[in-house]
Design a protein around this nucleic acid. Structure first.
Lengths: 198, 198
DNA sequence: ATCCGCAAGATACGGTCCGTATCTTGATTG
DNA sequence: CAATCAAGATACGGACCGTATCTTGCGGAT
C-alpha cells in the first residue's frame, strides 16, 4: 500500500508493518509468488530495507509466522488426561492454523536444505511445542496417578503433536472427529499400554 | 549434458532422459534452484520440449519422483504382526528415501495450493501406499488371529505410514531404532488395545 | 536549538529465469 | 519417397533477483 508522504518508520514499527505486509501478500498471491519486491511495495518500503533483515522470501515467511504464533500458552487443566490431551491437540491445531498448511510446508521444505534453519525450527518450535505442552499435560496426569512416569518416553511425549502435524500437513485442517480418533485409537491406548493405572 | 550431434530422441526415450536430468539437477542444485532452463540444458533439449509436457518445475519434480518409485511391491510374510510391520515400515522408508525429504515436502507444499494435484498425490500415493501395504499386513494378522478385524479402523490402518511420514518429513531419515520405537511404543499397543488376542 | 550519524527509502543496474512464439530440421508414417 | 509432426534452436518481453549508490528524514548527542 502507499503511505503518508512525511513519516519515516523505524525499528519495531517498521518491522511489524513489513511482517503484516508479508502476511497479506502471502494470503493474496500464495507463497510461491511471494517476492521481496511485492512485499516491499505493499509495505510501502523498498527491497534494501528487507534485505537488511532477511535474506530471502522463506526467511521472511518464517519470521512472519513466528510473529503470529502466540509466545507461550498453557494447556487448561480439565481434570482428566483425556480432557487435557484434547485441549492440547486443540491448542496445537490452533497454532498450526495460524501459520497455515502451505506456509508450514514451505518452511519445512526450506529447512530440509538448510541445516542452520533446521535447528531453529525443529528445536525452537517443534520441540518447544511438544515439550512445553505435553510436559504440562503429562506431569498432571502422573500427579493424578493416571500415568506411570517411568513409561513415559520421548516418543510418547511427542506423539500427540506428531499425529496432529501429520494430519494438518496432509489435509490442512483437522476436525474434532479426527482429534477424538487420534486420541482414543492411538494416543491413550499407547500411553495406557505402558503401565498406566487407569 | 551435451549430446550427439545427430540423433533426435522422441517419445519415451526423450521423456526418460528428461526425468533423469531432473533428478541429477535436483541433487546438484536443490529444488529451489531447479529451473526449466537448467533441466533442458542438462537433458540436451530445450524449454519448449519441457513445457509441452509439464507446466512447472514442481510438475516436473512430481513426474520425476513418480517415475522413480517402484510400481507395486508386497510386504514379505515374516510370520508375525510385529515382523510384518517392521517390514512394512522399512519398505515405506525405502520409498520415501527414493523420493527424498526435500522433494516430498516441495510436492506437498505445491499440493497444498493445488486441489487438482492434491487428489493425485493424496489418493494416488498416500492412500495407495497405506492401504496396499497395511492391508496386506493386517489381513495376514487377522488370519493368524493376532488381530481382531472389527477393531481395525481406517486410522489404525494409516498409522504406520503416518508415523513414518512424520518422522521422515521432520528429520529426513529414520533409523532402525526409531522404527522399533514407533512399533513397540505406539503401533502395537494401539492395535492390541482394541481387542487383539495377542 | 543545532549538528551528526544512521538507517529509511528511492532508484538503477546486470543478471537469471520465466513462458511463449517462431523457425528449421530430423524422424516417423504410409 | 513424400508428407507430417514433434524435436530442437533461438529470440523475445517481462518479472524478479540481489546489490550499489544516493538522498533524506529521524533521533540522539552536545
Amino acid at each position: 500500500m502507499e503511505r503518508k508522504a512525511t513519516s519515516r518508520r523505524r525499528g519495531e514499527a517498521l518491522e511489524q508493518a513489513i511482517l503484516d505486509a508479508v502476511w497479506d501478500e502471502f494470503r493474496e498471491v500464495g507463497f510461491s509468488k511471494l517476492t521481496m519486491e511485492g512485499v516491499a511495495k505493499r509495505a510501502g518500503t523498498s527491497k534494501p530495507v528487507l534485505y537488511r533483515r532477511w535474506s530471502s522470501p522463506v526467511e521472511l515467511m518464517i519470521a512472519c509466522a513466528a510473529s503470529r504464533v502466540p509466545k507461550a500458552e498453557s494447556v487448561p487443566d480439565t481434570g482428566t488426561l483425556r480432557g487435557d490431551t484434547i485441549a492440547l491437540l486443540t491448542l496445537a491445531h490452533e497454532r498450526m492454523r495460524i501459520v497455515g498448511q502451505t506456509a508450514m510446508l514451505s518452511m519445512l521444505a526450506q529447512v530440509s536444505v538448510d541445516p542452520e534453519a533446521r535447528k531453529v525450527l525443529i528445536e525452537g518450535i517443534v520441540n518447544n511445542l511438544s515439550k512445553a505442552l505435553s510436559g504440562t499435560v503429562y506431569a498432571r496426569a502422573i500427579a493424578r496417578g493416571e500415568l506411570a512416569e517411568e513409561h513415559l518416553t520421548e516418543r510418547l511425549a511427542r506423539l500427540p503433536i506428531d499425529l496432529m502435524r501429520n494430519e494438518f500437513i496432509l489435509f490442512g485442517h483437522v476436525d474434532a472427529g479426527a482429534i477424538e480418533e487420534m486420541l482414543d485409537q492411538v494416543i491413550l491406548p499407547a500411553l495406557r499400554a505402558r503401565g498406566a493405572t487407569v
